[in-house]
Design a protein around this nucleic acid. Sequence first.
DNA 1: ATGGTCATGGAAAACGATTTCCAGATGGTA
DNA 2: TACCATCTGGAAATCGTTTTCCATGACCAT
Lengths: 333, 333
Amino acid sequence: MVSIKDVAKQAGVAISTVSKVLNNYPNVSEETKKKVNQAVAELNFVPNSVAAALSSKQSGRVALLLNLGNVSQAVDEINMQYMSGTISRAVELSLDVITIFDSMLKNKSLDEVVRYLRSQSITGLIIFGMSKDDRVLQKLIDAQLFKIVTVDAPLVNASSSSVWINQEAAQYDVAKKTLKENKGKSILYLAGKKNGYVSGERLKGIQRLAEEEKIPLLVRNGEFSELQARNLTLRYAKKKDIVVCASDLMAIGAMRALMDMDIFRPVCGFDGITLMGYAGKQMNTVRQDFVRIASEAVEELRRLLDGGEGRQVVLDYELVRMRYEDVLMAARI
Amino acid sequence: MVSIKDVAKQAGVAISTVSKVLNNYPNVSEETKKKVNQAVAELNFVPNSVAAALSSKQSGRVALLLNLGNVSQAVDEINMQYMSGTISRAVELSLDVITIFDSMLKNKSLDEVVRYLRSQSITGLIIFGMSKDDRVLQKLIDAQLFKIVTVDAPLVNASSSSVWINQEAAQYDVAKKTLKENKGKSILYLAGKKNGYVSGERLKGIQRLAEEEKIPLLVRNGEFSELQARNLTLRYAKKKDIVVCASDLMAIGAMRALMDMDIFRPVCGFDGITLMGYAGKQMNTVRQDFVRIASEAVEELRRLLDGGEGRQVVLDYELVRMRYEDVLMAARI
DNA sequence: ATGGTCATGGAAAACGATTTCCAGATGGTA
DNA sequence: TACCATCTGGAAATCGTTTTCCATGACCAT
């Protein structure tokens, strides 16, 4: 293994000089730089990041916490986009990413989690899809031991930021659009998780709409489950004009239930996942740019690590109508 | 930051002794162990893995290369299972995993890739879904600079192993089952990629079946694309009794095309992805346990890193029939 | 008593970088 | 000429471990 020492010898300079050249320090003459760079090239030298991390005490390692909670293809698509957005941007900002799934944290105490993170020299965290009642994560954030960016959970303090879209407005918008298009006079709303941050915001959105429009709203908790959405639809949809769902997966469950019941009700979802193209009928939904969200989260984390203050970043969303044809054409091969 | 030095002082022993206790070396008395462990607990000491890696020259860092090639939800599901299988098992075997997407490697030379991996102190690689014509990966394997495990690509040498299921037999089996169930007398086969390892094996399987059964077989390349499968089906399905596809995604494209044409042909797929439940009709397919495959790949890599010889690991598959109801119930919430 | 084994624990040298501090050279100014 | 500031580059300490080698003492057999 060729080390900085070999480069120094080859270039006829001191180790520290090589280090300075490598890290673009000032106070190095062009001539010396040239000599060093040549030696680096000749020896095909690659700096050892482990040694650099130890020496500089800056590991540049961050962890990506993903919630695989309810395993379904729909969630996979979202998580994959989160991941690719995160990792791609992280490489550009010279951060190493360790991926951690919530399942790996099950039955672990805060202390154990912290030990693991510290043993891995992790200094920053990006947490996707945390729920309000997650005690461990909550404590982790409160402890302020790490720089943290939460996605879809509004937790801002000195050492943590959060990134999300305006869930309340998005739910309001997509539901209103669906309502107007179909001249509906009542809404069945299939909500998400009781303790989810996003679920709460979306619920507020639909409540505001019902209030403004002065129309009846029936809310039922569907836990983001396709099956529960199906069952709730079978039970309640007949009496309402439109079915608004807190997620696409639930919208699909609702739509298929309606088809089985052989009645028509407009349904709208939330997320913009590919599976919507396979539901059998077109539906309105809110498209979130998960890659962009992840990318912003990484940038925010980089900012925090560089000493920035915690803050809230709010991103755009888009109302779309999903059809099989579009999904078919969108897949790039 | 409390270090091993502090622990040594607290316990009243030498640094090396602490290290020995921590790493379960022999030749340490129970009494000393107890003292050290107590000090560790009191100080809440967490070993610094970066320093350990530098010192021992064993980083324990491996990279996971994922092929996001054709972006579709179907592939996301598979990749996600690969990932979770890999990462979970890796933690248990104390390996750190860096995830790399093929998109990050685009337009990079072998040299650049090697530099990146070396700078990250990566010693082992797990490569999912490599194609025969990937020059860079091929050279990477030939160079034998890293211990490598390929999944679905049979590349075995002294420093690399491969893990996969018997694709040839699986394709043969699922097609035969579908053929027999429907008393078919001819087959339309929609193949995968021209240069894919798995595509080649699956093609061999269907060819063997056609030969054994002495029935006509029409093969067309569908590139694993749902859209291409759709188009090929529209064009060729009328003249054949059953449609066998090299992937579930293609099977879905084929099935929807048949429904649009309003003719019936049995279709079978390959992979066992969730999306199969949304195709509209039940289909036979081959279920691969991707989590298990990934887990085996990690174990194989661990073996290679520990000095083992390269070898080929072949895992089981299962023939299944996918229905919406099953998918609905399978999602755990 | 002497010598040899064995178990145990410590001293110190790596590992490969970063970073601080200092020395010498250079050049401009009084 | 003397002094000072500025610019360069080097020496050495440091980061927190692992690992090798050696010293010590206990125990046993001769």
